[in-house]
Amino acid sequence: MFKVLARRAFMAAAVSAVALGSMAFQSNDGQDRHVRITNATGVTMTHFWASSAGEENWQEDILGSDVLPNGSAVRINIDDGSGACVYDFRARFADGDVLERYRINVCRVSEYRYSAG
Rank of each mutant, 00 (worst) to 15 (best):
D80C: 06
V98I: 10
G21S: 12
E111W: 12
I104Y: 02
A9I: 13
V35P: 01
D29V: 11
N28G: 15
V74C: 08
A73S: 15
D66T: 09
D66C: 03
A12E: 11
G21C: 08
R8S: 14
N70R: 04
S16R: 07
Y102N: 13
V74G: 02
G71T: 05
T41G: 02
M23G: 14
A12I: 08
M45Y: 03
S52I: 03
R113F: 05
T41H: 03
C85Y: 01
A14S: 07
D88Y: 08
V18Y: 06
A17I: 11
D88Q: 08
R90W: 07
A116D: 09
Q59E: 07
N70H: 14
T41D: 04
M11Y: 07
Q26K: 15
R7E: 01
S52N: 02
L99I: 11
M45Q: 07
E55K: 02
L99W: 13
Q59A: 07
M1H: 13
S65F: 00
G96R: 05
D88P: 09
F10A: 11
W58F: 07
A6I: 14
S27N: 14
Y112G: 09
Y102F: 15
G30R: 11
N105K: 03
M23P: 10
L20M: 08
C107I: 07
D32Q: 04
S110E: 14
Y112L: 12
R113K: 12
Y87G: 02
S115H: 10
Q59G: 13
D95E: 11
N57I: 00
S22M: 13
G54M: 01
D88I: 07
D32E: 03
G81P: 09
M23R: 12
D79T: 12
G117L: 02
I76N: 01
Y112I: 03
P69W: 04
I62L: 15
R108N: 15
A9F: 12
G30E: 11
D32L: 01
Y112P: 06
S115M: 06
Q26F: 04
A91T: 12
G42C: 09
A94K: 07
A24G: 05
F48D: 01
V106N: 08
F25R: 00
S110K: 15
V15H: 09
D61H: 02
F48T: 02
Y114N: 09
R103T: 10
C107K: 03
I104N: 02
G96V: 06
R101F: 14
I62F: 06
K3S: 14
T44A: 06
D80T: 05
F89V: 11
V18Q: 07
R108Q: 15
T44D: 05
A17V: 08
V109F: 08
A6Y: 13
E60A: 04
V98W: 01
E100L: 06
N57H: 06
A12F: 04
H47Y: 03
Q26M: 14
A6E: 13
A84I: 00
L68V: 06
R36D: 04
I78R: 03
D88A: 09
R101S: 14
